[in-house]
């Protein structure tokens, strides 16, 4: 029993750490997103609460918590409230196997990459449950789009991840990081440039972010799958979305950008990982406020006609080169 408790303590610390990390990131990212959007559109963004509006998201969070939880008439109450929880819970687990620094790793898992892919698939389920259970036409339409989109974009994402797994011979994120040690030339972005581009595009599709945010396209579907959610029901979906963004950007920096290794040998640490992850996150925000939303058939055509064949070709080429 003693041994069990000893094993349990690091896990509990890692889970609590993930929760804190997720909360801070959601606050910071929402602020950054609004500020960025403001400056891209030549307006100051949030400005009133605190210096340059830094406290705006905190106050918005409190406002969200203070609102009433509404369940629409004829909605399936159980599934309706299950959906946001199901969207939120797996995110906490996803941070565990990501090596943020030489010491700062929640839990070294042999199959870390697979763990992330497996548990992130809960989000698609949560989205369709939410859309269906709200008993709302916009919700159902958003859910139907979300299904077609996430199932489609998962395939090129998996294929690019597989290409990296072929090269490294492991699914352990710590091991993948270790193989990119040394200087900038060892990062996998140079060996797998095509995979990096495909991953980057599929990343937008998987996280339902603009220009691929058709599941919640506000100009046609009000808010898509979360139209009916009020208060923290919406808040949980929102936090989960930012959580998935942080996870997928962290995974991208581990797979292609060397994780916590710096561009020159000798200096390594969590600050590199943080800088790379946030650079990717800013890319996502930037893309959201610069590109118009694509049409749904265009979205699926990009995936099935371009990303999937290219990813397959990339995988076959990787296998061939690895054999030679």
């Amino acid at each position: 029993m003693n041994e069990f408790i000893q094993n349990l303590i690091p896990v509990v610390i890692a889970v609590v750490g993930s929760m804190v990390w997720l909360g801070i990131n959601a606050l910071v990212l929402v602020y950054c997103e609004r500020k960025f959007a403001g400056h891209i559109q030549r307006r100051p963004g949030p400005f009133e609460v605190g210096p340059h509006g830094v406290l705006q998201t905190l106050i918005d969070g409190l406002k969200l918590m203070g609102k009433q939880l509404l369940t629409p008439d004829n909605a399936d109450g159980f599934l309706y409230w299950l959906a946001p929880i199901l969207s939120m819970i797996p995110v906490l687990l996803l941070f565990m196997p990501i090596p943020y620094g030489p010491v700062l790793t929640g839990m070294q898992v042999n199959l870390g990459l697979l763990l992330i892919l497996a548990f992130s698939s809960f989000n698609g389920l949560a989205v369709i449950l939410a859309g269906w259970a709200s008993n709302n036409k916009w919700g159902v339409l958003g859910a139907a789009r979300a299904v077609a989109q996430t199932v489609a974009y998962e395939i090129p994402l998996l294929l690019t991840v597989l290409a990296i797994a072929f090269m490294t011979g492991t699914l352990d994120l710590t091991e993948i990081t270790a193989q990119q040690a040394g200087h900038i030339g060892n990062w996998f972005i140079w060996k797998q440039p095509l995979a990096f581009i495909i991953f980057l595009i599929a990343m937008f599709g998987e996280t339902n972010r603009a220009p691929f945010d058709l599941a919640e396209a506000e100009s046609e579907l009000t808010a898509g799958f979360h139209t009916e959610y009020s208060s923290m029901g919406f808040g949980l979906f929102f936090m989960a979305e930012y959580g998935y963004m942080v996870v997928i950007c962290s995974v991208c920096s581990v797979l292609f950008l060397g994780g916590f290794h710096g561009p020159i040998p000798g200096i390594e640490g969590w600050w590199w990982m943080l800088a790379k992850t946030y650079a990717l996150l800013f890319l996502m925000i930037w893309a959201r406020w610069t590109f118009p939303r694509v049409r749904f058939d265009q979205l699926l055509n990009i995936n099935w006609k371009w990303l999937l064949p290219l990813a397959t070709f990339n995988l076959l080429a990787t296998a061939l080169i690895m054999k030679l």
């Binding site: 898992v109 199959l111 497996a118 389920l125």
Partner: peptide, 25 residues
């Protein structure tokens, strides 16, 4: 056998049940 467990989640929870859901809808 964590590999089997994760594959079960990835394939059945992530893909198959989502497609069944689509059919039901």
């Amino acid at each position: 056998s964590p590999f089997m467990a994760f594959m079960q989640l990835l394939i059945y929870v992530g893909a198959v049940s989502v497609l069944i859901f689509f059919a039901v809808m």
